[in-house]
Amino acid sequence: MSTPVIELRDVSRKYDDGPPALQEASFAVRAGEAVAILGPSGSGKSTLLNLIAGLDRPDAGTVTVDGVRVDQLGEAGSALYRRAKIGMVFQFFNLLDDLTVADNVVLPAQLAGMARGTAHRRAEELLENLGIARHAGAYPGRLSGGERQRVAVARALMNRPALLLADEPTGALDTAAGEEVCRLLTELNADGQTIVVVTHDLGLARACTTRTIELVDGRIASDGATLTAAVR
């Protein structure tokens, strides 16, 4: 079998004097999978996302992403790791309103040192593929929520990441726009992109992914293709 893109082994994280946010979590995600990390508020989803993204470190256990021991990286190494390996899509888009759509998409490539011409050709390709090329010169504030999320996905894919992390990607969208973004994630996965969606929405998990990992009180409660109980 292929080497996992993500591998967590006995990962735990505790903050201050409260209960552990994550307790002895172990799982692997292989290339081309679309996985939902599912659970209610306080279940440990955000902690898990931050550990995979190198934004936090575990107190115990190991986190490996695309061959990189993320738990051993320092601040500078974590930034380089995210730039090279991770694309992130957030609930509230996190676009820069004073930059055009094209400039928002190009930004990760500029930070990575990609040649200007190469970066702009890549951005044009992504915007065309995602159906928003006509908005390249517009500013994000003039776009609908669904269009802004497509821009965010294009930006996340700019450096051809091994892993796309989506944190509640439809949480700020109406139903129609949310379904549009869900179809987009499904299409990207069908093209081979490895995706992890972090959500409390069982419907989103079922529609966009083929495997769910359910967290309850910081522990993995289930790991499989089907969930039978709604998450509240």
Rank of each mutant, 00 (worst) to 15 (best):
V101H: 11
D66F: 01
R122Y: 01
D66S: 13
Q72F: 01
G39Q: 00
A136R: 15
S46F: 03
E128M: 05
S144F: 08
N159W: 08
A177N: 15
D103A: 15
G178C: 10
V216L: 04
L99H: 08
G87T: 05
L111F: 14
G141V: 09
L173P: 12
T228W: 06
A176H: 13
S43T: 01
A102Q: 12
G87K: 04
Y81A: 08
L96P: 12
E180T: 13
I220V: 15
A162E: 06
G32A: 08
E33V: 02
D223P: 12
P20W: 03
L49P: 08
V198L: 03
G44P: 10
E168G: 08
R155K: 11
S144Y: 09
A102W: 01
D98P: 05
A177Y: 09
G44N: 04
A177S: 15
N50L: 10
R122E: 04
E33N: 01
R82Y: 09
P19R: 02
I37Y: 02
R155P: 15
D66C: 04
I86P: 03
V151A: 07
D17Q: 07
E147Q: 15
V106M: 10
Y139C: 08
S12R: 02
Y81F: 15
I220N: 02
V68F: 04
V105P: 10
A225F: 04
Q193N: 12
Y81P: 11
R150F: 11
L202P: 06
L38T: 03
R69K: 10
T64C: 11
G61L: 03
T62F: 00
A112C: 06
S222K: 03
T175E: 14
R121W: 01
A36I: 05
H200M: 08
V63I: 10
L202T: 13
L107E: 13
R155F: 12
T226K: 11
A102M: 14
R219K: 14
L127Q: 06
L111W: 04
L126H: 07
L164M: 09
T100C: 10
R116D: 12
G39I: 02
A166P: 13
R57S: 12
R160M: 06
L215N: 00
D103E: 15
Q149L: 11
L99P: 09
S222F: 10
D59F: 04
T199W: 09
V65H: 03
D201M: 07
C182F: 02
D56T: 05
Q193P: 07
G203L: 05
A133V: 12
L184M: 14
N159D: 12
M88W: 06
L55H: 02
T100L: 11
A172G: 12
I52G: 01
V29L: 04
R155C: 13
R121A: 14
